[in-house]
Write a protein that binds this DNA or RNA. Structure first.
Lengths: 179, 179
DNA sequence: CTTACCATGTAAGGCGTTACATGATTCA
DNA sequence: TGAATCATGTAACGCCTTACATGGTAAG
């Protein structure tokens, strides 16, 4: 059913804060959003066209010295649509960890292989955690803008979660190595 | 690219433990696996046919009093393929939480709406957590089978994670309600 | 006797990714 | 002058879900 990644809502949400190009949107998605969302150019640009057609955003060309860029900004109608969606209850929170799938079948792989996956997972998480902690510090410095409070909420979520993952890594290793 | 949900691997993994019907497989996916994986009949049955054709599983009909059922079991070749996949590094661990997306755009929605989402999220998590805790207790009673140790690993992951979520809910509310 | 669950499948269609195509600009 | 990044787009293709179709069995 329609619009699994809700690219339209993501774009409207981002444009609420400031006008952006498609390329900018991709950077935002790969940045602060990347811990809980993702999306590709192949869905960003077509969605921008659709949103322009239906009058939820306006496109205008700008030329600031460099090459021409297509900047998009949200309309009042767009804000209304965004708000409608924001008010609706969440439909789906989904976690899909291949790591856990492999661990679930760990008996076939054996202890050594399983430990390998746990260690690799731990490495990735440590990297992500320190990135999030940098985000967090930056956000705490920028307490002036109300928006940042909401960004901080999602960053805190990531930090809390990743810390729990690391704790689990320790416990998991202990459980496997016992006996 | 190919096989995002790795239904073939999921099926091979489950059949490693015991022969199952397509319907059984769906139940497993909706049960212990559901916290980190999912899949529908529309992908299970076609995958079973494909696996049968390529000789990784064998199909046989059984009639145990009731109606005929199609039971599948894994072949040596199938085990080899599964093991190959299990050894490979994990490609993707993905979290996609609409809740976080809505919180990220929380300034548009305002504090009240945001708190609503947090509370609804908390309710869901509490329910899931108590389910997982029941799973955990059952698994601890069945320590005889080595397999259960690996299942326990994934259940522990869920429990640890959900506890962190609940802790975050408290912190998030505090942050929002301050001032 | 009817509801719930067991059981197997197919088809349409949406959705989004990857890969391709193209080219400007900036910086070293 | 070459690499990296900025920048915009399209097309093919795979993947999976939803919905539909069908019917048996068990339990109350």
């Amino acid at each position: 059913m329609a619009n699994d990644k809700r690219m339209d809502c993501v774009i409207l949400g981002l444009l609420c804060h400031e006008p952006l190009t498609g390329y900018d949107i991709k950077k935002r998605i790969d940045g602060a959003l990347s811990f809980f969302w993702n999306g590709s150019f192949g869905s960003i640009y077509p969605t921008l066209s659709k949103l322009t057609e239906s009058g939820l955003v306006i496109k205008y060309e700008v030329n600031d010295g460099g090459r021409n860029r297509l900047l998009y900004s949200i309309t009042d109608e767009g804000k209304k649509v965004l708000l409608e969606w924001l008010k609706e209850p969440v439909l789906k929170d989904e976690l899909r960890y291949e790591t856990l799938l492999k661990l679930f079948f760990g008996e076939e792989l054996g202890m050594k292989g399983t430990l390998m996956h746990i260690n690799r997972f731990e490495e990735k998480i440590k990297t992500n955690l320190s990135m999030l902690q940098m985000f967090e510090e930056n956000l705490k410095l920028l307490q002036d803008e109300e928006t940042h409070k909401y960004y901080l909420l999602t960053v805190m979520f990531g930090i809390e979660t990743y810390k729990a993952y690391l704790k689990w890594c320790d416990n998991a290793r202990k459980l496997l190595e016992v006996r």
